[in-house]
Amino acid sequence: MAHPLPRPETSGDAALILAWQSGDEQAAAELVGRHARPLARFLAGAGAPDADVDDLVQETFIRAFRSVGRFRGQCQFRTWLLTIGGNVLKDFGRRAARRKVLPLDEAVRDVTGDPHEHAEAREAEELLAAGLQKLPRLQREVFLLRAQQGLEYDEIAAALATTPGAARVHYHHAVRKLKEIVE
């Protein structure tokens, strides 16, 4: 069972959104500072190549700030941001497929620290990352929002325009499939 992480400071987000809408650039920078790392984790977990995470984070924030007028507070700002990140990643995947650009091979990625320890630590993560790529997008996102970001089902459901029950079902399907893959 996932143990939800402490909720981000949502009331502060609302004030910052209002400030940004009034033209306060510093408020936008503050929102980026609050949510960039969790967004990067989500994107990387959902399959973004490491080398592109920075660009994808920027693109997600740009889209979010431009459409923030459509954010009605149905969920936390961060959750809404993560769903936009999911869309940005999907578009990135389409463009990459058209250009036939392959993600960097794991073997040539930056490796620091003890190689043996590093390899052991990464093995299970790589299995999980590979398994996540085999899941349908909705199951993958529900799993990451729940297990990685520690969100409750009602929050996930609000962000993905589904019901908490359906989100729970997606999560359990994802866990069942991932267990088979990782084991």
């Binding site: 960039a36 790392r37 969790p38 990067a40 984790r41 989500f42 994107l43 990387a44 977990g45 973004a48 490491d50 995470v53 920075d54 984070v57 299970a124 993560e125 999980l128 990352a129 996540l132 799993f143 990451l144 297990a147 990685q148 990782v182």
Partner: peptide, 14 residues
């Protein structure tokens, strides 16, 4: 495992 996923990418982010 999921909580660790993407942690390095997040740490590297400036």
């Amino acid at each position: 495992l999921a909580k660790r996923l993407g942690a390095r990418a997040a740490e590297r982010l400036d």
